[in-house]
Simulated scan of single mutants.
Amino acid sequence: MSNDFYKKIGKSIKYHQKINWVLTLCFGLIWLLLTILVTQGMNIGGRSGLFIAPNLTLDGDGKKYLNNGMGESISYIWGIFGFIFFSIITLILVFNTFLKEMRTGQITLWMTLGMSKTSILLSKIFNIFSILIIVFIPSWLFVVVIGSTANDANLYIGHIIASGFLFIFFNLFISTIYVLIGMIFINQSGLFLSIALFITLFILATSIINFIWIMVSYSEHGTAKDQPFYSWMKYVKYFSIQSLYVQILQFDDRENLVPTVLFRIKDSQTMVAPLKISNLFWTIITPFITIVGSISLTTSSILIFNIKDLRI
Results as ranks from 00 to 15, higher is better:
Ser130Thr: 14
Leu109Ser: 14
Ile285Ser: 07
Leu91Met: 09
Ala224Phe: 11
Trp232Ala: 13
Ser189Pro: 06
Val216Tyr: 06
Phe85Asn: 03
Thr260Ile: 09
Phe239Tyr: 12
Lys266Asn: 14
Thr260Ser: 15
Phe126Asp: 02
Tyr245Cys: 04
Pro228Cys: 09
Leu23Glu: 09
Arg103Ile: 07
Met233Asn: 05
Gln269Asp: 12
Asn127His: 13
Pro138Asp: 05
Val144Lys: 02
Leu33Tyr: 10
Lys276Ser: 15
Ser240Met: 03
Gly79Asp: 03
Phe83Arg: 00
Ile128Tyr: 00
Lys225His: 13
Leu132Asp: 04
Leu197Pro: 03
Val258Glu: 13
Leu310Gln: 11
Leu193Lys: 11
Met115Gly: 00
Ser116Tyr: 06
Ile77Gly: 04
Val94Gln: 00
Ala205Ser: 10
Thr176Val: 06
Lys308Ala: 12
Ile9Gly: 04
Ile291Glu: 00
Ile168Thr: 04
Val179Asn: 04
Gly28Asn: 05
Ile203Arg: 03
Pro138Glu: 06
Lys234Ile: 08
Trp78Lys: 01
Gly114Leu: 03
Lys7Met: 08
Val135His: 00
Leu141Cys: 10
Lys18His: 14
Val236Met: 10
Ile208Met: 09
Leu32Ala: 03
Phe27Ala: 13
Ile19Asn: 13
Thr200Val: 13
Glu255Ala: 13
Asp226Arg: 06
Pro287Gln: 04
Ser175Tyr: 05
Gly222Tyr: 08
Gln188Asn: 14
Met115Arg: 02
Ala196Trp: 01
Lys64His: 14
Gln106Arg: 07
Leu34Ser: 12
Ser294Leu: 13
Gln188Trp: 07
Ser2Gln: 12
Cys26Gln: 05
Gln106Phe: 06
Phe95Lys: 15
Asn256Met: 09
Ala153Asp: 03
Asn127Thr: 15
Ser207Asp: 07
Ile89Thr: 03
Leu172His: 00
Asp59Phe: 07
Ser123Ala: 15
Asp59Ala: 12
Phe170Asn: 01
Asp253Cys: 04
Phe167Ser: 10
Ile209Cys: 05
Ile241Trp: 08
Val94Phe: 01
Val179Phe: 01
Tyr238Cys: 09
Ile52Val: 08
Met271His: 09
Gly79Lys: 01
Asp152Asn: 08
Ser116Leu: 02
Thr299Val: 12
Leu249Arg: 07
Ser73Met: 04
Thr90Asn: 01
